[in-house]
Design a protein around this nucleic acid. Structure first.
Length: 541
DNA sequence: CGGATTTGACCAGCGC
DNA sequence: GCGCTGGTCAAATCCG
């Protein structure tokens, strides 16, 4: 493009191919006077004029006053170029006077075909401009959402600091702000819970019966064995049912029993065997699941000794390009920023699910968790455990995959979207009616689709959110801020992240992972009943 | 050689 | 009670 054309009140448009949505055409900057809303499109976009080997360009007149038009017309005449001036101003009349004519008439050769062609191109350009305007507005809305999310997170950090300074218990906003006082008191985790110590940790802490903390009981077969052993050991202690501490412990166990069952399933298109969520995993099993020719792989987090987090990975039976990753458990160690993205996402989703924070509309969670990244979240409260499925596939199976970020960026997009959810929940706590419904209405399965997120928008917003959230500066700064605030600076402190559970983690400080992985797996949040992945599949397809 | 992966066995829950 | 299924373990194997 001829950069010289930028002068003389003409602002040249880059004719090179460019994704939509990054050009603010209809909202000219106001801070860069003198700005003349005349744009010149050049290059191959404009057909060559026969006999004219000079430049090819179309000048689009955005002028709103005669003064600007006159100057632009003069500038155009000075150039002696093959210009096509198009008046796009609504309601303008090219026959008003000679000055207007100078700026608005189509200076084309007397070739009717060429004129028709240019007219068609004009309409195409207008539609293109309209599309770009829509795209621009969507981007603005997304930016607003990101800003809001950031502010909400910042406010939450401030609240954390205050609570820490006051010594008051702090709870996740999804729980604290969506439950009535009584329910919130029942579900409210202790400060240690929120900082990574589960209810069992609190119970164990009070009883001083074990060094193991943050240990939701596994419900799997092996976990059940472990559970039975632990229960037998507790029976050996002959707890008094009337003992308040015993009752509290049983309460905590009941709470964690329900919490550990929550799962977060993420559907994302990926050719890789697993999605890159930032954590280190070790495969410990593989099974053929009924109804799916693809095997299901079982992974365990190996970033820390005894980390109870596990995940199942299986390809969708109907669309092999879709990878379904189901997370369970709570990390008991610090996470790298890349892992924080996915972990916090699933954490927030599970927290919202477990907190029963859905208001009267079942689609609330979908709109809250995924207002833009996908537009679809599947909430399954079916027995034996609730599952929230976050769909990042952007479209039905078989649909042509849209331009989308790689899986790890999708995770980051989800991370961003979840914080949007946090901000939405932050504004929700004023509504007392939102607490009436509870996810514990076992037996209901709800498929919900965000009503205000058209597919094309989902793609764009997810990609943009991914770009923002995956920015190393952003995530690193966020993690550093949280670490510095919660941990009081100096040493890295684990960010309370859990998958599928709520407040089940523990602080690493003062805890020494043992070499007995089984013992440490008391922290595991494992369930062993129905195939929730299959449930998710059936519900989301 | 150590860590990761594979794979058969085992166990518990559930439905008939 | 029996078979099916999901989930996990652990020995064997693979791999860098």
């Amino acid at each position: 493009m001829d950069k010289a054309h930028l002068g003389g009140g003409l602002l040249a448009l880059d004719a090179s191919p460019r994704p939509l949505g990054f050009l603010n055409l209809l909202s000219p900057p106001t801070s860069s006077p003198p700005f003349h809303r005349t744009r010149t499109m050049e290059a191959d976009d404009v057909p060559a004029v026969p006999g004219n080997k000079g430049r090819r360009s179309i000048e689009v007149d955005f002028f709103s006053d005669d003064k600007d038009k006159k100057s632009a017309a003069a500038a155009a005449n000075d150039k002696k170029e093959d210009l096509t001036t198009i008046n796009l101003l609504p309601g303008s009349n090219a026959n008003d006077d000679d000055d207007d004519e100078a700026a608005t008439r189509l200076r084309l050769p007397n070739d009717q075909d060429r004129q028709n062609r240019n007219t068609n191109e004009l309409s195409a350009m207008q539609s293109e401009l309209a599309r770009m305007n829509d795209e621009n507005q969507r981007l603005r809305g997304m930016l607003t959402q990101v800003t809001t999310s950031y502010q909400a997170l910042q406010m939450h950090l401030v609240a954390l600091m205050q609570a820490r300074a006051d010594g008051q218990p702090m709870m996740p906003p999804a729980v604290a702000q969506t439950l009535p006082v009584t329910d919130a008191a029942a579900v409210m985790p202790s400060p240690r819970q929120f900082l990574g110590l589960g209810p069992a940790a609190a119970a164990e802490e009070t009883s001083n019966s074990s060094t193991e903390v943050g240990s939701p009981r596994p419900s799997s077969s092996a976990g059940r064995r472990q559970d039975q052993q632990q229960q037998a050991a507790e029976r050996g202690d002959s707890p008094d049912p009337a003992d308040p501490s015993t009752t509290a412990r049983q309460l905590a166990q009941q709470q964690e029993a329900s919490m550990r069952k929550a799962r977060v399933s993420v559907r994302a298109r990926s050719e890789a065997p697993i999605i890159a969520d930032g954590c280190q995993w070790r495969k410990y099993g593989q099974k053929m699941a009924k109804g799916n020719p693809c095997p299901r792989a079982y992974y365990r987090c190996t970033m820390a000794n005894g980390c109870p987090v596990r995940k199942q990975v299986q390809r969708c039976a109907d669309d092999r390009s879709i990878l379904i990753t189901t997370y369970e458990g709570t990390h008991n160690h610090p996470l790298p920023p890349a892992a924080v993205a996915m972990a916090s996402t699933t954490s927030a989703a599970a927290s919202m699910l477990l907190s029963g924070s859905m208001p009267s509309g079942d689609n609330f969670l979908a709109r809250a968790v995924l207002p833009c990244s996908s537009g679809m979240a599947t909430i399954s409260a079916s027995a034996p455990f609730p599952t929230v499925t976050l769909d990042l596939t952007n479209g039905p199976p078989g649909a042509p995959p849209p331009a989308r970020p790689p899986p790890h960026l999708q995770a980051a997009a989800l991370y961003s979207a979840t914080h949007q959810a946090s901000s939405k929940f932050s504004g929700l706590h004023m509504s007392s009616s939102s607490t009436s419904d509870n996810i514990n209405n076992v037996g209901t399965t709800t498929r919900v689709v965000a009503p205000d997120a058209p597919p094309h928008m989902n793609t764009v917003t997810a990609a943009a959110a991914a770009a923002i959230a995956s920015d190393p500066n952003f995530t690193v700064a966020l993690a550093a801020a949280i670490t510095s605030i919660i941990g009081g600076g100096g040493h890295p402190v684990p960010i309370p992240i859990h998958h599928g559970g709520q407040g089940q983690g523990r602080q690493q400080q003062g805890l020494t992972p043992t070499s007995n992985s089984n013992a440490n797996n008391n922290n595991a949040v494992v369930t062993s009943s129905s195939n929730n992945t299959a449930t998710s599949n059936s519900e989301t397809q």
